[in-house]
């Protein structure tokens, strides 16, 4: 018995025990709720099947259909709206974050007001914006105050030239403040002395932003860009809760949802999901390479910068370089 206790408390065994017990629950959950369903979904994609009844193995037919249907990839084009929206969102967030990191009267209130939409539930967003965009309601009224004539205003959710922008704007509304707070946090973590030094050098606001703030938070900006672009490919909620995907606002996932539930084409919908997943993976990889090359990521320097420097170093033939921080 004593031996057993000794054995169990011995560092090595204890370590193994610790690894196993600590990892068991999360890994079990990950397997049960992510990877088993994922495997099943891959399986579904090779079948012609409904939720009920017989299934029939059809090989790659579902995949062929995803590529030959005109609505699937047309829907992916809508992602451009959401990518554009996420650029606007990040730009605004960066702008406001910079403003608010310096002394501003009422800064806390502005920050709070702009952050608040992040806390609103998705269903509520649907209700709120249907109301907001209704003809003659909120948006139209405000624009009329500004001197617009109602007759010249579009139908925000009906006109196909603008409705995707309307819907994408709601996602800017919702997440801009959260991005802003993230950026403020990142800016705040920059050493205050740097600003002081810059001020002594007579740097203006823009210079401070360009040379101190931006470089020091570029990592998090890049990270958010990557998330924004992959997120834009798989947009579901805004059109789902606001327009139901009608009038050309159906994104890839909304179309998939319709196929799966209104037409019971589970196999096809699963194939669509897998195709999108592959696209997202490729997009993520490309972006990573891209950013690694031009800007650098995390603690790695940009590859381009490294090359330049190496070239310089080689030219100077100096032996003291090469420190990769």
């Amino acid at each position: 018995m004593r031996n057993f206790i000794k054995w169990i408390t011995s560092a090595k065994v204890n370590k193994v025990l610790c690894i196993i017990t600590f990892m068991f629950v999360p890994l079990a959950l990950l397997t049960v709720f992510t990877y088993i369903p994922f495997g099943k979904m891959i399986g579904f994609s090779f079948y012609d099947m409904k939720y009920i009844g017989d299934r029939e193995f059809v090989g790659l037919k579902n995949y062929a259909e995803v590529f030959s249907r005109d609505d699937c990839f047309k829907a992916l084009k809508l992602s451009l709206y959401y990518i554009a929206a996420s650029f606007v969102q990040l730009g605004l967030a960066l702008y406001f974050a910079t403003l608010l990191s310096f002394k501003t009267k009422g800064g806390g209130i502005f920050k709070g007001l702009m952050f608040f939409p992040y806390l609103v539930c998705g269903i509520a967003v649907g209700f709120i914006f249907k109301f907001f965009y209704t003809r003659g309601f909120v948006l139209d009224t405000v624009l009329q105050w500004c001197g617009f004539n109602l007759d010249n205003l579009p139908y925000w959710l009906k006109d196909t030239s603008i409705n995707n922008i309307s819907v994408a704007a709601t996602s800017v509304w919702r997440y801009m403040g959260q991005n802003m707070v993230l950026f403020i946090g990142a800016i705040m973590s920059v050493d205050a002395e740097m600003y002081e030094a810059a001020a002594i050098d007579g740097a203006g606001g823009w210079q401070k932003f360009r040379y101190i703030i931006f470089p020091s938070i570029s990592t998090i900006i890049v990270l958010n860009l990557i998330l924004a672009i992959t997120g834009s490919l798989s947009v579901f909620e805004p059109p789902y809760v606001i327009t139901g995907g009608n009038f050309g606002t159906g994104t890839y996932f909304v179309i998939m949802d319709k196929l799966a539930h209104a037409s019971q084409k589970v196999g096809l919908a699963s194939a669509m999901a897998i195709v999108l997943l592959v696209i997202i993976l490729i997009a993520t990889l490309l972006q990573k390479l891209f950013f690694r090359y031009f800007i650098g990521e995390g603690e790695h320097e940009a590859i381009r910068a490294v090359r330049k420097r190496k070239k310089r170093e080689a030219l100077a033939a100096a032996g003291n370089g090469g420190v990769q921080s």
């Binding site: 709720f33 369903p37 099943k40 979904m41 939720y51 992959t230 699963s270 997943l277």
Partner: peptide
């Protein structure tokens, strides 16, 4: 990798589980 998987699309099989 799990964070990249489309959650909505997988609910069909999650439901079975």
């Amino acid at each position: 990798f799990a964070s990249l998987l489309p959650g909505i699309a997988m609910q069909v099989s999650v439901y079975q589980i």
